[in-house]
Design a protein around this nucleic acid. Structure first.
Lengths: 182, 182
DNA sequence: CGAAATATGTCAACATGGCTGACATAAATA
DNA sequence: TATTTATGTCAGCCATGTTGACATATTTCG
């Protein structure tokens, strides 16, 4: 996946409608495009595996977050994914029916359906996370020891300012959640 | 867009099916999730604008690459986007019909339909790139002067090894293409 | 207690943007 | 001339997003 093959995209620049400074400064084309290509490759690894299970990216996202945050409420998941409950319902139902995710009644609030991955679900989730981790680890290996920190800070800074703290807490909390003993 | 609101996703970690080391090492959860959140916010800015024009992300990608690479062949675009010509045809036709993109016969090869943005198309493309650039610039401003380079190297390293060179050449060539005079 | 709010699920319909397969046309090339 | 290439187009399918309406159980509040 994802070689570029621009073949002979050479010098057909003849009739370009270039009009510099339609906006203020020059756009950061490099980062804009690298984000596109990097993200596309990043999600392609899981996509290939998921296809064999008859799942798509939507299933991946649900499985990922439930695995990362066992005991998540449906409402929490909707908040994180920012999709409608109808969209979520469709893929969640499939994951439950096929035994990758299960629901348990909340102990305090019996309206809640707390979500957990089954062992089968965890196995798939970890497989997918492993693929993505391999790619990231390869990248960091190429770049030196400070790369992890630099990447983390870059990505955090790219998140909407209002959401930043929430995301970081969310990640930190999940780290605790998945390792009650250690 | 994109605040997280995990509400009270607190300590419902009771019945976690944790089984460490289904794979070898621990996944890099932080980068995996930060990429998800960062990319989601990154594309949300253009999405809002595009919606007002009745366009979607697919139109954005086409407009972006045609703007960046005036004179691109249809086949080049298919290679970059990695979608089928039928999928491309749909959105491309809309962009042409509504006057954002135009086609010209290739001079050497009259089968080719070389793609160009119209002034109207360029204006929209630059508007969208401007939004994304603002976000990136804000991030770099938070992080110091080496941040641009660090981010670029991280993203390049995340691209499939085979595609890496092609992408970098593609970006470099586009930089030349849009500024024949300077 | 009873009313209202909350958490969830479900039905139906629709839009977007991927996909496959088949086929058509014009132009270049062997 | 025959074939290959670049492009377009028709028809239909699938995944995943949307809105709106409504149902159910449970909790919470006045």
């Amino acid at each position: 996946m994802a070689d570029i093959n621009i073949s002979s995209l050479a010098d057909r620049t003849a009739a370009s409608h270039a009009d510099p400074r339609t906006d203020s400064a020059e756009p950061m084309w490099d980062i804009i495009e690298l984000l596109f290509f990097a993200y596309r490759d990043f999600v392609s690894d899981p996509d290939d595996v998921l296809a064999k299970f008859g799942f798509g990216r939507a299933h991946h996202r649900v499985l990922h977050f439930v695995n990362r945050h066992p005991g998540m409420m449906v409402a929490d998941l909707l908040d994180v994914l920012k999709i409608t409950k109808q969209s979520l319902g469709r893929v969640l139902k499939q994951l439950i029916d096929q035994g990758y995710v299960e629901q348990k009644e909340g102990e305090n609030d019996r309206r809640q359906r707390l979500l957990f991955v089954t062992p089968k679900g965890e196995q798939l989730a970890m497989k997918l996370a492993g693929l993505q981790t391999e790619r990231i680890a390869r990248a960091f290996a190429d770049l030196g020891p400070q790369a992890h920190d630099a990447a983390r800070r870059f990505l955090v800074a790219m998140i909407d300012a209002e959401g930043r703290d929430g995301v970081q807490k969310f990640i930190a909390r999940a780290d605790r959640a998945r390792r009650p003993r250690t």
